[in-house]
Design a protein around this nucleic acid. Sequence first.
DNA 1: ATTGAATTGTTATGTTATTACATCCAAGTT
DNA 2: AACTTGGATGTAATAACATAACAATTCAAT
Lengths: 139, 139
Amino acid sequence: MASPDQADKALTRNQSLVLTELQGARAPVTAYALLDKLRPQGFRAPLQVYRALDRLVALGHIHKLESINAFMACAHGHGEGHHHGVAGFAICDDCGQVSEFADSAIEHRLEEWAKCNGFHAKKSAIELHGQCAACVGSA
Amino acid sequence: MASPDQADKALTRNQSLVLTELQGARAPVTAYALLDKLRPQGFRAPLQVYRALDRLVALGHIHKLESINAFMACAHGHGEGHHHGVAGFAICDDCGQVSEFADSAIEHRLEEWAKCNGFHAKKSAIELHGQCAACVGSA
DNA sequence: ATTGAATTGTTATGTTATTACATCCAAGTT
DNA sequence: AACTTGGATGTAATAACATAACAATTCAAT
């Protein structure tokens, strides 16, 4: 049996620091905001952050939100047989909070379109902008 | 009856120049690439481009591709009763060409999710990355 | 110990987007 | 005509996001 946190153990110091920071955040964080937060831990240049982010995205630990140039930890864990489907994000333009969701019907329709059009999809970005329930209520 | 090109007539000179440039392009164009192309027409600063782009996006004439920071003309025209649904984009990472598509099932699923979660969506971005049919063939 | 691959550190630079403020111009008013 | 008002534009400076190039270090496997 693999150790329970094998995925984490594969991470380097910088990657762990960035991931931990993102997991503790309540909303997406930009690369430069991460840099500032991690200066006490020795970070000094953007590349240290960007390199860690690239790796974490590749490993599936975090997502990049393309429409706001920010990053957030993946909503679910990384247990053994975890199916990594197409993820969607609902971004509140008022409070900044983001909800991650998965919808197999959407995933299926995208696959269908790709198949019909000979497109080989490698990754996807689905991002909604608007107001979350809390902000609609307090509007 | 409105004149056939009423929408176009509402555009200012700068907006028309930017829109025409995008309509003539075979792939998305970045703001700074537009600036360079329009220097002969008198453009000198990024804001001239960004202001025109903002307006054109708001009017539904063009789309911003969030994952590549580039813009493209809307695939369909702007006739009278044109339903502007949720648009998706398949971006070829090899040749740069983009296919715009619309899928009412996806739109419906997104609306459904929003309703169930009290999220008021104002806009959406759906972008696929991979290889288009032509590039897969010539790989 | 040596080597080779991956990671890291550092500097500089490139790319994308906005802020702030001055100016211009056309439409409506006195 | 002079005045006001609002949108559109021009201009300069800067902010925010991201990568290139290269040197130095770490560390597992020999």
